[in-house]
């Protein structure tokens, strides 16, 4: 096996852990399980992450950066807020479909087990890259006059709660159609709710 950098190795560990957590559940999976899956020693794994909690925090930061990066690209496009909503919804659902472990970790582990994250991931600390981009999307939409000015959280809750809810239903196998099927209607609903 070709020698890979520490950073790449770290990423491999995180990708593997995400899949394991999503398949088996966060509390069921031990550091040893992860090491085994990767074919590395537990001792070596601890060189990368000092504890399972440390790994958990890095994971949420990793996901947040990944999502933030994509929304940032959308934010930089010279398109209307309405079109941006469409792109964000599409990106979110496609990610949920192609890499469900990312969104599931966010919804089922990060949001549902806040006590794991209380030290070092307070408030928006570990999701800041993602939330910052959503803030900028809203701010620019209002500034341009396309979206209605309101409290950030009432808008954020509507947008993200809606998307999260749909992904949750998908994860539970309760959606009669593929999630892409809903992109257009949901984008329109969000736009109608937020427009000026």
């Amino acid at each position: 096996m070709a020698r890979i950098s520490r950073e790449e190795r770290k990423r491999q560990i995180m990708d593997t852990a995400l899949i394991l957590f999503s398949r088996e559940g966060f509390f069921e999976v031990t550091m040893a399980d992860i090491a085994q899956e990767l074919g590395m020693s537990v001792g070596n794994l601890y060189n990368y992450f000092t504890s399972k909690e440390a790994l958990a925090k890095e994971l949420i930061l990793y996901i947040s950066k990944l999502l933030g990066e994509e929304i940032r690209k959308i934010n930089f496009k010279t398109i209307s807020a309405r079109e941006k909503i469409g792109e964000i919804v599409r990106f979110y659902f496609v990610t949920a479909k192609e890499r469900p472990e990312l969104i599931e970790y966010f919804l089922r582990i990060y949001l549902a087990n806040r006590e794991i994250f209380k030290n070092g991931c307070e408030g928006f600390l570990c999701v800041s890259p993602f939330v910052t981009e959503i803030m900028i999307f809203f701010e620019e939409g209002v500034r341009s006059g396309e979206l209605r000015d309101q409290d950030f959280f009432s808008a954020f809750g509507l947008f993200m709660g809606y998307l999260g809810g749909m992904v949750f239903l998908m994860g539970e196998g309760m959606l009669p159609n593929e999630i892409d099927y809903y992109i257009e209607d949901i984008s329109e609903n969000i736009y109608q709710a937020l427009k000026a």
Binding site: E122, G123, F124, L125, S128, V131, T132, M135, I136
Partner: peptide, 12 residues
């Protein structure tokens, strides 16, 4: 700015 304030606001 938003990153910094988001971080600051995360602590009480």
């Amino acid at each position: 700015y938003l990153t910094m304030t988001g971080v600051a606001k995360s602590f009480k």
